[in-house]
Simulated assay, not measured.
Amino acid sequence: MKISQDLKTQLDTSKANANKTNGTTMSFQQTVSQEKQKMHEAQLNRLLGDLSAQGEKVAKFRSFKDLARYKRMVQQFMEEAVQYGLELDQQRSWSMNGDNRKLMLVKQVDEKLIQLTDDVLDQQKSSIDVLDVIGEIKGLLLNLQA
């Protein structure tokens, strides 16, 4: 049985098309990855905006319901940032105690949330003090996002 020249050229053409398709797939995957990253950034920015609005409500009304909602929103933001928004680098910065810098930032956010709770409970604190703590928490979250 002899293979004709016609069949051989068809095989070469199909291989060339397969190589072109593979290159297109990589481009498509990169496009999907970029769009996914943009969606996650938009989600984090939306959460941060909602967090700011809720923080203003906490400072204005000082209710436990608003405070609990604010804390849940901070927790949700941090989960989203760690799961989707942050690209964890292999580089680590360790302190003298062996603590990782990222963990220290999370501890600071927790400390600020405790301070915010104490300020809301203390009726003697002014709204400016509460807004100051909320601003510090927002700054830490922005630092976490960046």
Rank of each mutant, 00 (worst) to 15 (best):
V74L: 03
V120E: 01
L144A: 08
H40M: 10
F64R: 05
K102G: 09
M78E: 11
K112Q: 14
V109G: 03
Q34W: 00
I3P: 00
L67V: 11
T21Q: 14
D132M: 06
A68S: 15
L47W: 00
K65A: 01
V106N: 10
V106F: 11
G85D: 10
E136V: 00
M73L: 15
V82E: 15
Q10D: 10
V109W: 04
T31E: 05
Q75V: 04
Q108N: 11
A18M: 14
G55K: 02
I134Q: 02
D99V: 03
F28A: 09
T13C: 03
L7G: 01
Q10G: 09
L44S: 12
R72F: 09
L131N: 11
K8Q: 13
A16Y: 11
L142Y: 10
E136L: 13
Q124M: 01
T9S: 13
E41M: 02
G98I: 08
V106S: 11
V32C: 02
S4I: 03
N97L: 12
L113G: 00
D89M: 11
L86M: 15
W94A: 04
S14M: 08
K60S: 10
A16D: 13
L113V: 04
V130H: 00
Q54K: 12
M73C: 09
L7A: 15
I134H: 01
S127W: 03
A59N: 01
E41R: 02
Q115I: 03
E136P: 01
E56N: 04
S27D: 12
L113A: 02
L48S: 08
L140Q: 10
M104G: 14
K138H: 07
L67E: 07
A81W: 05
K102I: 13
Q75N: 12
D119M: 12
M73N: 07
E136N: 06
E41K: 05
N19M: 06
R46S: 04
L140G: 02
I128W: 02
V133S: 14
Q115G: 06
Q37Y: 08
E111V: 08
R69N: 13
L144M: 13
L47A: 04
K20L: 10
K57R: 05
A81I: 09
V74F: 07
M78G: 04
Q90W: 06
